[in-house]
Every structure is written in C-alpha cells, then in structure tokens.
Simulated assay, not measured.
Amino acid sequence: MQALQNIEQFTKGVKMDKWAVALVTGATCVVGSVVMLVKKISSHRETEEKIKRARNKREESLQRAEQAVLRYKESHPTTDSAFILTLSLSELTQQLKEGSLTPEDVLYSYMEKTLAVNKKLNCCTEILLESLDQLTTVGSNKDGLLYGVPVSVKENITFKNHDCSCGVVINLDQPAEKDSVLVQVLKKHVVVDLRLFLVFLPALVLFVELGEKVPELWKQHAAVEDYIQETIAHWRSCNIDVLLCPVIGPAYNFLYCGKLSTAASYTMLYNLLTFPAGVVTVSTVTTKDEEELKHYKGCYQDMWDKLFKEAVTGGEGLPVAVQCVALPWQDELCLRLMKEVEQLVKESKK
C-alpha cells in the first residue's frame, strides 16, 4: 500500500515538473519572440533613418546647386548656356583653351541642365559641390586634356568622402576612403585637379529588405574585391606595367572546352579580376605542328595531357595567340602592348 502511495506521489511530481518545464519553455519562447521583434523594429528604424539621411543629403546638395546656379546667372546675365550645351567635346575644349569660354560658364551651364533633367527623370543622386571650390585654381591647369570640362561619374564609382551605395541600404553612411582608379586617372591624366564631377545613377533604388541569399552573395563579392586589391598591390610591388600571357594552344575541338577549362585558368583569371585584357594572333598551327603533336606525351602523361592532345588535334590553320593584360582603367597600356606585339609579328614575317 505504501509503495502505491509513493508511486502516486512520484507521478504527481513528474506531472508538476512537466508543467513547469512547459511553462518555462513557453515563457522563453515568448521572451525570445519579443526580443526578435524588438531587434527587427530597431533594425527597420535604423534603415529608415539611413534612408532619411541620404535623402536629406541629396536634397540639400540639389538645393545648394540650384541656388549657386541662380546666383551665377544673376551676376552673369550674358552667359549663353544654350549655345554652350550645343558644343561638341572638341569644340568645347578648344574654346576653353582659347579663353572664349570660361570653366565657370561651362560648369554652371551643365549644372543648370542637370538640375532640369533631374526634375523630369530623378536621375541625379548628388552634385559634388566641392567642384565649385576648384574653380578658383583651375586656371593653372590649362594643359589638361579636359581642362574646364564637367565630367559625370556613376554613383557606383567610388569618390573620396562620398557614399558608393549602388542602391543598397547597407552601403549608406560608409563614405569611400579613397578615389577609385577611374577617378584617380581622370584627376592625374585628364582633369588634373579640376574636380567637376556630376554624379548620376539611373533610378536610385534603396532596398530596405534583403533576402538571406543576398548577404551570402555580398560576402562573396566582398571577398572578390579583396582579392582584386591584393592582386593589384602585388602587381605594383613588382613594378609590372603590363603582362604577356601565352595562350596554351589554338581553339579546342567541340565539347572539349568544358573538360579542359583548368588549362586556361591563368588567362581566365583576369575576367574575375576585371583587368583589361586583349588577345593578339602571333602565328597559326602548321602541318609540322600537327606532325609533332602526334608524338606529344605531355608533362605527366596523365588524363589531362591526353585530353589536351585530343582537344587541339586537327587545328591546322587555326590562330595561336598571346593575351595582353594591364591594371584596371589602364586600357590604353593594354592596347599599346597589343600594338607592339602585332608590329613585332609583322616584322618577323618580312
């Protein structure tokens, strides 16, 4: 009898423990849900604040630009903006260098046109007003190829101390620490110290909600960008101007490209790095080459050597080329190397 009573009391205790566990679990879930909700609301508010700040900054930039244009027009009523906007680039640069037009006339004319177009299309994210300060020193840079010419740069091109959001909220409030390579080249080789940049981005869109795949893609993109910067730094530390990459062979036979993509990885790499690259034909596959290929064993006599032989067999007459590579935004150096290679090939055939 006593044993039955003990069992009954134990059973009641177990039931009470289950209820307690259930109660604690339920309370924990509620608290967790509340915490997650608070975090989500807080994150949403933070996002809205970022968007609000970006919009206010943009509006302030446009308003200040409008005021600057009005003041200039009042003090220079004879400036013919309509005529300036009809000039081609060559005509514009010529008149600027001759002095028949001033950089101020050109800048304010284009700013006025930009503001007018923006009201219709909502295409301007910001006008860099520091360009107005450069007008005081621009006269000393008349040798620049684009002396006094306003230059527009898309919002996805980094400009020091300005956001490069690409329309994504996560990138707001993160001003670039330095100019992009394009901006550096413009300042150094084209515009010199004249920073007349009107920044455009067709239909700026701020994505408030991002899916979970998106962060992974963003991490991958960030890793690629880091790799690009590491490669550029190493390239420069080696004092390399341009690079010449011999292509491994002529075009592969049908269905072999996918099987032997690793053999071309050292040339395909520059697609990932976004380096300018071009291919120049230096020779063609000859009958002698085909005869020698019949005895080709490869480096390791493995599957890859066998596949390569099959891939290029029967290529008589096909071009054999080299790949020329340069750093980003230095396309002219790549083209110069290609021209030099082409010239050497012509001379060798004489």
Rank of each mutant, 00 (worst) to 15 (best):
T125H: 04
S88N: 08
G258H: 07
N156K: 15
Y270D: 04
C257P: 03
N141H: 15
V169A: 11
V69G: 00
S165M: 05
P246Y: 04
D179T: 02
L194I: 06
R195F: 01
A222K: 15
M268R: 13
V322H: 03
K297P: 08
V117D: 14
V181Q: 12
V345G: 01
E66V: 02
V322S: 02
K18D: 00
S140E: 15
E48F: 07
Q94V: 05
L243F: 14
L87E: 09
E310A: 04
T158K: 13
K306S: 12
Q184G: 04
K119F: 02
V35W: 13
A22L: 06
Y108L: 07
G211V: 11
K346H: 11
Q301F: 04
L198N: 12
G314S: 02
V106L: 00
E230I: 03
A222Y: 10
V285E: 02
G139Q: 13
A54D: 12
M1Y: 09
V69P: 01
V168M: 11
N118S: 05
Q134D: 13
E316Q: 09
H234W: 04
G298Y: 13
R55P: 01
T25P: 01
P246I: 03
E104P: 07
R236V: 01
G139C: 06
E155K: 07
K219A: 07
V325E: 02
I248S: 07
S61C: 11
E177Y: 09
M36D: 10
V205R: 11
L204G: 07
N141K: 14
S140P: 12
K349F: 08
R55I: 15
L186Y: 07
S109A: 07
V151S: 05
E130A: 06
L85T: 12
K113N: 09
I228T: 09
I232P: 01
E340T: 14
F159P: 00
E91G: 10
T28C: 13
A3G: 06
H295I: 13
V183M: 01
V341I: 12
V14E: 00
F308D: 05
V183Y: 03
